[in-house]
Design a protein around this nucleic acid. Structure first.
Lengths: 171, 171
DNA sequence: CTTGAAAAGAATGATAA
DNA sequence: TTATCATTCTTTTCAAG
């Protein structure tokens, strides 16, 4: 009664860390770094994609380079009970919302918003506030980042978990 | 007096969108989709990496699969004037902080924190609050996501910008 | 589970338009 | 800027330890 199906070992962790650091690294390269053949690495990656431990591979861009120079978090307060189903619909209507979640605390939801500039952000905010059951919003404009952006990068240390699973540091 | 050095055209935008959607796509594949040879695509990608329009390629993981089941945003209030330099130092001391920025509003900074569970989160919070000049924190635990995670993925429409540059939708 | 060989496909650099 | 071609490297499948 120990590990069920070798869900995630040290080698997997290192592979994930390598792919987070560089999603275009070759399997041979990763294998060389951790002492495995390219084939072995590929099979583990395939398995982790299957299990949705790895959900995809993406390019990280510098939003300012694409013209997105304004970033904000917006707390949303709704009329009465806010059904998350309905909130999700609203959120999808505004492409400038890049992340949205329900949270504890006074607000019903927290949105991450990107806009080209402050004028654009104001326009987005007005659009959001015009949605039927949004009662109030409260915005935090992002001034400067204190960490290298890191779209959640850099698996590091294992953290103990239930039984035999392990976790890796994000960032 | 129009475009200086072809900084970012429609083809570049499509390439970025393709790489955000799948960072492991081959240059030939991307080229076929947008009517360019693999070599031409590669050269444009090289240039965008050079310009740091594209800053890297990363794997997206499902944090819960790695044991990170608790997520929160934490507002930080400091004693007196909070020097961002000093704040950045503090932030780097806690690997559970995956993003941190200074913001407008009452708080001095907003942190994104990942922990394995609520107990771990409490421990992180205590560690942060024990830092010299942190006066107060206010936490928003994330309950559920309203959008598919998207580590800032999916460039879509061009948005007008200064003169002749273009921007792409994130998400 | 692993490795290693072999065919198919991709990356890269030179050449030329 | 672009495409084509040749070389090298990588991915992927397969047989087998």
């Amino acid at each position: 009664m120990s590990n069920k199906a070798a869900p995630f070992d040290e080698l997997d962790r290192k592979i994930v860390a390598a792919l987070i650091a560089n999603a275009r690294a070759s399997f041979a390269e990763i294998g060389a770094a951790i002492g495995l053949s390219a084939t072995a690495v590929k099979r583990r990656v395939d398995r982790m994609r299957e299990n949705e431990v790895i959900t995809g591979f993406t390019a990280t861009v510098r939003p300012a380079a694409l013209g997105w120079r304004t970033e904000a978090y917006v707390e949303v307060y709704c009329e009465g009970a806010a059904p998350p189903r309905r909130l999700a619909e609203v959120v999808r209507n505004h492409p400038e919302i890049t992340a949205a979640m329900t949270v504890t605390g006074g607000a019903d939801a927290l949105l991450h918003v990107r806009a080209t500039d402050v004028e654009h952000f104001e326009e987005v905010l007005e659009r959001i506030r015009a949605e039927p059951f949004i009662r109030k919003t409260m915005s935090y404009l992002v001034l400067s980042h204190l960490l290298p952006d890191s779209a959640e990068a850099g698996a590091r240390e294992p953290a103990p978990e239930g039984l035999g699973e392990s976790a890796a540091d994000l960032r």
